[in-house]
Design a binder for these strands. Structure first.
Length: 157
DNA sequence: GCCAACGTTGGC
DNA sequence: GCCAACGTTGGC
C-alpha cells in the first residue's frame, strides 16, 4: 500500500482563498499551467493525500488550513474552453495537456501560520516554499513538515 | 513599486 | 539545439 503524500498548494487569495474553499467545501483545482505542477496532479496525487493551503498574498503570506485530495488527476477542461482565461489551444479532449484534482477542505487553523514564522522553524528550513525564486504553485512536502505546521496552526505554541 | 528567479517562446 | 527576450510570480 502506497503511503499517503503531503503537498503544499499556493493560492493568491484574490483568485481563490481558503475562505472560498470553506464555503465551497470542494474545489476543482483548475488553471494550473506549469508542467511540473501538472505532473504532480496527473501522476502523483492520490485520494486522501493531505494539503496545506497557503496564501501568497503580499504582506499576508501564511498557511490557513488543510485540505485533502478527493478526486485524482483528470483533464483540466478549462484548457479547451475558449472563454476561459486559462484557455490553451494546444490542449484538447483527445489529447489533454493539463490536469487537475479536486480537493476538499479538511481543517481550519486556529491561527494562520505566517511565512515569517515558518522561516524561524529549523525543521522547516528545507521547504521549497522558502527557496528564493521558487514559484512552483504545488509542491511536495514531508510528513514531518506537515505535522510541524498543523501543530503550529492548532495554536500549540 | 521593484526586481530576482523562473518558465516559455521564437528567431536563428 | 541554443539562447535572448519576454511575461509572470511572488517576496520584499
Amino acid at each position: 500500500m502506497r503511503e499517503k503524500q503531503y503537498w503544499l498548494f499556493k493560492s493568491e487569495p484574490s483568485s481563490y482563498s481558503f475562505l472560498d474553499l470553506l464555503q465551497d467545501r470542494v474545489a476543482e483545482w483548475d488553471g494550473v499551467r506549469n508542467y511540473q505542477a501538472r505532473s504532480f496532479m496527473r501522476s502523483d496525487m492520490r485520494m486522501g493525500d493531505e494539503i496545506l493551503f497557503y496564501h501568497s498574498e503580499q504582506g499576508n503570506q501564511a498557511i490557513f488550513g488543510t485540505a485533502r485530495v478527493v478526486r485524482e488527476g483528470y483533464p483540466d477542461f478549462t484548457a479547451w474552453d475558449s472563454a476561459s482565461k486559462h484557455f490553451d489551444p494546444k490542449s484538447n479532449p483527445d489529447n489533454p495537456i493539463w490536469f487537475m484534482v479536486d480537493i476538499e477542505v479538511a481543517e481550519t487553523f486556529q491561527r494562520p501560520v505566517t511565512l515569517k514564522e515558518i522561516k524561524d522553524v529549523p525543521q522547516l528550513e528545507n521547504m521549497g516554499l522558502l527557496r528564493r525564486g521558487n514559484r512552483l504553485s504545488i509542491q511536495p512536502i514531508t510528513e514531518t513538515e506537515f505535522d510541524v505546521l498543523i501543530l503550529l496552526g492548532r495554536g500549540s505554541d
